[in-house]
Amino acid sequence: MKPMLDCDTVMRQLWAYLDQELTEDRMEAIREHLAVCARCFPQLEFERTFLEQLGKLRREHPNPQTLRTRLVAALAAEGFTAF
């Protein structure tokens, strides 16, 4: 049986874990640790909420069709022909 990761290691890699930027083995090891660790779990929730707030800053362009029309016209002046 593999030894459990310690809290320090988990805290160091918590963001990479939330971003899913770790190997599958490491993701799994951290998941196991978080499931049982009262110290790291609140930290996980804190970071997760923070990242969710950042994700909400995403804004769609309000008029994509107008922009596209303008763009195609500008490109046409460079020789581009849409079809």
Partner: peptide, 15 residues
């Protein structure tokens, strides 16, 4: 990773 740890400190001070 040190930045990650520093964020843990932000969390505990917030807590």
């Amino acid at each position: 990773e040190l930045e990650s740890l520093a964020a843990a400190a932000v969390h505990s001070s917030a807590e």
